[in-house]
Write a protein that binds this DNA or RNA. Structure first.
Length: 257
DNA sequence: ATGGCCGGGAAGCCCGGA
């Protein structure tokens, strides 16, 4: 059977609730990983989503960050945060097993600016994310907002952006470290050529001018990659009224009955 | 050339985002 899974940074799940419900009714995926929910667990709008047949597994905090999984299939072995506890006061990682696959739903720190200490924390967070993803024999899928464009086709102006946050060589090296470890950037397996974006700045008419970046990634371990049947970006919600600045990335994964 | 927008929470601005 095919398991359908998606990742979407919604930039506040409460502000985007109508978009999430609309999108799920049009794209009834089995698993939807959310980032930047920006809400404590007690205020997560679970009842509205239960009406669509989805249960919510949440790891939130007030105002900032927050990850959650909406699912209509059973999740097992849920845990939150990096194993070391690094940046444990920020809700950025939610891991679970589904149909024999270990998923990591990740919201990587933005880093602010390459000159700031926050940027070094981002690099270390990425290093620890890889260690966590590489620590199990299960097939692994890491999906979420990586806040890094892996290569020149993943951003609108690579020459201008070279060395700036989300396109600094040290960040791209961290993505390369995933690939060297055997992880595969699944979107590029199915769409190897051409510019492709998942995020467009709210400012400057960036979406209208298609000045975006591909920051939302699906990385699959060596044993998970052959299970993939397709990956696509859905740019549509970026054109809806009061959108998130990110759009969903969907994938089809073949799993045993 | 520059900057242009959001959300949350507090407060009538500031932080953080990317």
């Amino acid at each position: 059977m095919i398991l359908t899974a998606a990742t979407w940074n919604v930039n506040s799940v409460r502000a985007r609730l109508s978009h999430v419900t609309r999108w799920l009714s049009e794209n009834p995926v089995d698993v939807l990983c959310l980032q930047e929910t920006k809400v404590t667990d007690d205020l997560f709008p679970g009842d509205e989503l239960a009406g669509l047949g989805y249960s919510a597994t949440v790891h939130g905090q007030k105002s900032y960050n927050g990850v959650a999984v909406l699912s209509r299939v059973t999740l097992e072995d849920v845990f939150t945060g990096l194993p070391s506890g690094f940046l444990g006061d920020q809700a950025r990682l939610l891991s679970f097993r589904c149909r024999g696959i270990r998923f990591l739903n990740a919201y990587v720190p933005n880093g602010g600016d390459v000159a700031l200490p926050a940027f070094e924390l981002k690099l270390r967070w990425l290093t620890e994310l890889l260690a966590a993803a590489d620590s199990t024999a299960e097939p692994v899928i890491v999906m979420g907002d990586f806040n890094v464009a892996p290569g020149p086709d993943d951003t609108h102006s690579p020459e201008e952006q070279e060395g700036s946050v989300c396109y600094h060589p040290h960040e791209r090296e961290r993505i390369q470290a995933f690939l060297h470890t055997g992880f595969v950037d699944m979107f590029r397996v199915f769409h190897p050529e051409g510019k492709a974006y998942t995020w467009w700045d709210y400012r400057a008419g960036a979406f209208r001018r298609n000045m975006g970046m591909r920051l939302d990634l699906v990385l699959a371990s060596q044993t998970a990659a052959p299970l993939f049947r397709g990956v696509k970006i859905d740019p549509e919600p970026r054109g809806w009224d009061k959108p998130s600045d990110h759009v969903p990335v969907l994938c089809d994964v073949e799993v045993p009955e």
